[in-house]
Design a protein around this nucleic acid. Structure first.
Length: 477
RNA sequence: GGUCCCGUAGCCAAGUGGUUAGGCAACGGAUUGCAAAUCCGUCUACGGCGGUUCGAUUCCGCCCGGGACCUCCA
């Protein structure tokens, strides 16, 4: 099936047509490692993960690169000779910028794992690509689209007429209300730094280009260097949060296309920011959550993943704790259904004669159609729910139970938000199984008080009793 | 100030010019000793005002409300 994706550049749905047939190259703007990853960050990263999984599901090979920005970025204060964000974090904690980066890279990786992210093939760090950045800077200087002032290098916007094509920003004159950075070094206020010289900066490198001074790279250049290094001069897909569109991606396009002379990216995709309780997430509103905050409240990575992907990436997802509870219930419903199918498949429950083939086929088709339509996860989840309902209603043939399980396995492979296929029977500890036997005996004698007391005891141990027509069994709660 | 997005039943959230998406919650029933799980049923909405149309939640305009970006926040 044709995969159609929204291209921010053209603002239209476009068919995914890889430059090299059969292989899709993706680059994702990754984390800046000066603080703990929050749920907003992971909405973007999970969107990229689901995109990759679905493209693979459709039989295409994917090469995925996600950068890790371990060089701090300039802030407005920096114009006045202040510090960048990593430096600020460094000052606060007494650690070096390098140690800060190391710590947060570690935390980021842990979050990826907890949220079941399929790891990108390459996750390069900006600090390991200084030399490659230098090659591009060198070339841009040679082509006279960049200029040097007091050792710092800036990209000259006027040399790249297409600047603004992605974001639609035409900043001939900076508008009233917009923040304007004053920097005397720039020929044009829109010009952006490729290399900065600032003696106060902790992270410093000898200039990786001819005739430069010791300093550090501008923010945008790292992505051009890392993406083209791994994926070539032209990529199929480039993603990021909506805030990256301008200026970051605009600048990436300018410097990369000025460097290579080719169109840089076929399809630009941007994830909408999430809202928390209907408001923009911010520390001052007290609605700011890191991934660790959510997990600390007792929710699982799986539940958080579900809550963060259930709405299509271009819609503004309203994140709430109630939504997390819904995710928990929705996951349980799917898993409950799969568990029964496993029991039918494995002969632990008597199969019937109901056909499920049609339901499986239509669920698969609806799922594919929804995901092909610019990753409409909400609609894809409806297809999953339809198969759950059809399965629960039926006492299917054994082969059909198997087919339905295969469909659920596929949905899990793409969305990753339901969990692994449940076991038919959880192997409960011997003492719990013994308690279950005691309850069965109590039930036989109609000693309901004793039976319920034992059930509570088992529940306290984290298990629940399922009274099926074939007898009671234990399942992990 | 400029550019752009959205407003769907109690909550979350798809979609469509005319045939109740889905999830969660709630309520009634079946099953059950009681629960849990499951099934059946109920809850039929599209911010407001105009316009186009045989017909608009869907297209257009205005208004109201929420949100995003405008130099480094995914």
């Amino acid at each position: 099936m044709v995969i159609r994706l929204h291209n921010s550049l053209t603002r239209q749905l476009e068919e995914l047509r890889p430059l090299r047939p059969g292989t899709v190259t993706m680059y994702h703007c990754g984390p800046t490692v000066y603080s703990s990853p929050h749920i907003g960050n992971f909405r973007s990263f999970l969107f990229a993960d689901v995109l990759r999984r679905f493209v693979e599901d459709q039989g295409l090979a994917v090469t995925q690169v996600m950068n890790i920005t371990d060089v701090g970025h300039l802030t407005l204060d920096d114009i006045e000779g202040g510090e960048d964000k990593m430096e600020a974090a460094s000052k606060k904690t007494g650690k070096t910028a390098w140690q800060i980066a190391e710590q947060y890279i570690e935390e980021f990786r842990l979050c990826q794992q907890q949220l079941r992210v399929r790891l990108p093939h390459h996750m390069p760090r900006a600090t390991e690509f200084i030399a490659q950045m230098g090659v591009i800077i060198d070339d841009l200087l040679a082509k006279d689209v960049a200029y040097q002032v007091n050792g710092s290098v800036y990209f000259a916007i006027e040399k790249f007429p297409a600047y603004g094509k992605l974001s639609g920003k035409v900043i001939d004159e900076l508008e009233e209300g917009a923040r304007v950075a004053v920097n005397d070094e720039k020929h044009d206020p829109r010009d952006f730094a490729l290399w900065k010289v600032d003696a106060k900066h902790q992270m410093q490198w000898d200039a990786p280009f001819r005739g430069g001074s010791r300093g550090f790279p501008g923010w945008h250049i790292e992505c051009s260097a890392m993406s083209t290094h791994y994926l070539g001069e032209q990529l199929d897909i480039h993603t990021g949060g909506e805030d990256n569109m301008f200026p970051h991606h605009e600048c990436e396009i300018a410097q990369t296309e000025a460097h290579t002379g080719k169109r840089f990216v076929s399809i630009w995709m941007h994830a909408r920011h999430l809202l928390v309780d209907g408001k923009k997430m911010s520390k001052s509103l007290g609605n700011f959550f890191t991934v660790a905050d959510i997990l600390g409240k007792g929710y699982t990575g799986l539940e958080l993943r579900y809550a963060l992907i259930r709405v299509q990436y271009r819609q503004s997802l309203n994140f709430t704790l109630a939504g997390l509870d819904e995710a928990r219930a929705a996951i349980a419903r799917v898993q409950q259904c799969r568990r029964r199918l496993v029991r039918l498949r494995d002969g632990l429950e008597r199969a019937g004669g109901d056909s499920l083939g049609e339901a499986v086929t239509s669920a698969n088709e609806a799922f594919t159609a929804a995901m092909s339509d610019d990753l409409n996860v909400s609609e894809a989840l409806a297809a999953v729910a339809a198969l759950v309902a059809a399965s629960n209603k039926a006492t299917p043939l054994r082969d059909d139970a198997t087919a339905a399980l295969a469909a659920f396995a596929r949905f899990e492979d793409v969305l990753g938000c339901f969990g692994d296929e449940p076991a038919a029977v959880d192997e409960a500890p011997a003492e719990l199984r013994q308690l279950l036997g005691q309850r069965n005996a109590a039930k036989k004698q109609k000693d309901w008080a004793a039976a319920d007391r034992i059930r509570d005891e088992i529940a306290a141990a984290g298990w629940k009793i399922v009274d099926a027509p074939t007898g009671a069994r234990l399942e992990k709660a």
